[in-house]
Design a protein around this nucleic acid. Structure first.
Lengths: 207, 207
DNA sequence: CAGTTTGGATACACCGCTGTATCGGATACA
DNA sequence: TGTATCCGATACAGCGGTGTATCCAAACTG
């Protein structure tokens, strides 16, 4: 059965990619050797080169999946907070929605903060990888932005900065805050409050 | 003459560090081999190991210098915009001062945007290097922050976010914006306008 | 239950980097 | 000008990673 074969193959691909993800965070994309990735996944390099043409290609696949996952969790987070016939135009409603987005979609767990940074740097150096990363990121940002701006519009709220500056501002702030927490060894979490402050500062409710 | 010797030594150290800086941006700290650094500087590895104990130590020295330079240019930028017996409490005055700070001190040229990111990741992985980087960065931030908050106070201006969140917010925004420009190949410069928007949004002038 | 295919393991040849130990030419000093 | 010192070059042994070519077992096929 073809599916059975494909299933097996897919399983080793998964394990390889999971191992790679870990090692990318630990050692960087470049420094993580194919050897090491295979070892951690419980394979030898034979398995790797049978499944991927190169580390570059694995990265591509990684980002592709990440993109899908991002889109899904984002949409899930959006629908999870229903239109809810609220009559009060509270800033808190907007906040909740946006914050949920960041919690769910733009996962700020240790792993992905490091990996995003790692992948950006890798993209800078790998011309073949760059467009893929840019496309995935921009798609995710667009999706989230659309949701946010719609929410804002419904509340009659406006922003103190251009709309297309909102996501970069918040995202980069969170990422930096998380990175700082990681580097200093502080417990994670401060970034969340920081983001809320930032949002409250940037959003203007109708008079 | 001892100074002559030292001068010579210092010169090769400089060349090695300059080469390292370039290569760190091009290939990453880890991927830049000692060999390559020496080659670009016009030396062999003998010179390197005669001057530095390891790549780690070179990084340390690099950051130390960067810190000094940062402090100097920041202070220069601050004194360059004199108290100027202005009577008008214009937001523009505050803006000018802060923007000048970022232009001068937190240099956002291609090189250093990449290297800062690079060093952060390196710090995450090198326990001996981490505290050094953190200290330099925090000193620079403190200095700039002190200057800014004093400026704000003099104008009677306040912020819509906690004071200690200002620098991370602005800095991370700029860095991200620059990085995006680099990745997409857009001409640099948009970040500057973005920063101005952000500042205008965050600063509140007295009624 | 043979025959075929698939997929991962093994073996091989090669390269580049590391760090140290040693050497030799230039420079400083009397 | 001779001598000591300094500092970068050279030589060497060793390691770890790369990518390919080949092999073998297990899983599918009819």
């Amino acid at each position: 059965m073809t599916t059975e074969v494909s299933t097996r193959r897919q399983l080793t691909r998964d394990r390889l990619m999971a191992a790679a993800t870990e090692l990318f965070a630990e050692r960087s994309v470049q420094a993580a050797s194919v050897e090491e990735i295979c070892e951690r996944a419980g394979f030898t390099r034979g398995a790797f080169y049978s499944n991927f043409e190169s580390k570059d290609e694995l990265c591509l696949e990684l980002v592709r999946r990440r993109g899908e996952q991002l889109v899904q969790t984002t949409q899930a987070a959006l629908t999870a907070i229903p239109e809810s016939g609220l009559t009060e135009n509270t800033l808190d409603e907007v906040l909740a929605k946006v914050l949920a987005l960041f919690d769910a979609g733009f996962s700020m767990d240790d792993h992905w903060v490091l990996i995003r940074s790692e992948l950006r740097m890798y993209a800078y150096r790998s011309p073949s990888f760059r467009p893929a990363l840019l496309e995935v990121e921009s798609r995710a940002v667009e999706l989230a932005l659309a949701a946010i701006s719609e929410t804002l519009a419904r509340q009659g709220a406006t922003l103190r900065i251009p709309l297309d500056q909102l996501m970069p501002t918040m995202d980069s702030y969170c990422e930096r805050a998380r990175m700082n927490e990681i580097l200093t060894g502080e417990p994670a979490g401060g970034w969340h409050q920081g983001l809320e402050h930032l949002l409250r500062a940037l959003v203007v409710l109708p008079a």
